[in-house]
Design a protein around this nucleic acid. Sequence first.
DNA 1: CTTATAAGCGTATCTTTTACGCAAAGCTAA
DNA 2: TTAGCTTTGCGTAAAAGATACGCTTATAAG
Lengths: 230, 230
Amino acid sequence: MELRQNIKIAVDAIVFGYKENSLNVLLIKQKFGVLKDQWALVGGFVKDGETLSTAVNRELAEEAGIKVSYLEQLYTFGDDVNRDPRFQVISVAYFALVNSTKLVVKADTDAEDAQWFPMHNLPQLAFDHSVILEAAKQRLKNKLSYQPIGFDLLPKEFLFSELENLYCTILEKEIDRRNFRKKILSFGIVEETEKFGSKKNGRPAKLFKFNKLKYNKLTKEGFLFDIYFA
Amino acid sequence: MELRQNIKIAVDAIVFGYKENSLNVLLIKQKFGVLKDQWALVGGFVKDGETLSTAVNRELAEEAGIKVSYLEQLYTFGDDVNRDPRFQVISVAYFALVNSTKLVVKADTDAEDAQWFPMHNLPQLAFDHSVILEAAKQRLKNKLSYQPIGFDLLPKEFLFSELENLYCTILEKEIDRRNFRKKILSFGIVEETEKFGSKKNGRPAKLFKFNKLKYNKLTKEGFLFDIYFA
DNA sequence: CTTATAAGCGTATCTTTTACGCAAAGCTAA
DNA sequence: TTAGCTTTGCGTAAAAGATACGCTTATAAG
């Protein structure tokens, strides 16, 4: 069977980080090509013989030198034939989370610059990347309520107030501190440590950690993580 | 910029129908090619200059001659480089629902045969299509609980018992008839008609219909469809 | 020592879910 | 005609869960 097809296939990654009450996205500025001097999502073309997952991970390494803590396919963008001015490109977008509190991104081989931008202060983006980003933001908002992915944005050990602020920030909602704590603790998947975190004022707070193993076990038994707040 | 890429891109559609307490999938058997005499999902390669949506709709028309009542992108399968023995193919899978109660599929131009198969009695499928189908089944199960897509599988006017059976069948759960009715009605998006449906025995039941406009309006106001049953 | 600030615990109230009971309306068969 | 079966449709009590707060505790700053 002969098949001529001139459509190109690319992968893009929306990498979210969270630091000091701000949700951030990782963007890059490329050295070469049409993207030169434009901020864009991490991404690039899939190589022959490469899987989609391999391609995203490669791009994440090449362009930003990071390892993400969560990665899932988001959506495949291919309903605008001219989303790329060069040729017809279909892009499989991936949704990624990293614990960016201690993370420093380094512009690697391909990228001139890699930088975190707060979601409420984004630069102009290349192509249809702002559309993709918007879809990712929505996914993050939704998923936060029914999957414990918030922990992937925090360090291994965190304060309850940090977790709470993360939810408030991303969901753009006020949440009652006490009820939030009660609900999260009721699941039995977040555990107290012996350590204390440091804050300027107020009563010192214990550090907590997410027990992923227990979460996985409970999930198999039918447990559903669910923290919807009106 | 020169770019050599020999990856092909295809679309596949998982079309679900519901009839007489059975969830069914639409499968086709092709006239030509490697797929000859094998049951497979509706699908094919994307043409140059064509969008993904256009491609699926074209395939749905060409291979089965149907118009679906619901269509959304499911997932893009490209993590197995050898999912197609001929060459590397990335497939964007779509999830579709049709009201199949009165629908007769006709094998159109490309397909030798198009047929509904009950989910609990499937033939061997080509390629990795059983994996794709499994993902679609999962999507259907999940989505049923937080989006009113069940109505897309039923005729415009339906009995409450039909809706209830649809939920029981797909979710593979027992649901209390009375509580189910109460909950659905409490949303105010399903309305009573003057007509009655016919059943062999028992008290005659009113026909109901889904008010999509009202649902859309409520959704904008923050309403969340949600019918989880333990 | 006082004040400010955040952490942590508890509880009354309101809402929702769950588990059923039971009458109504039709069909069938004696 | 009527007894029996079946499905529909409505209601309600009890259990569970969500919500709105009050109050104490532990630390730092002044």
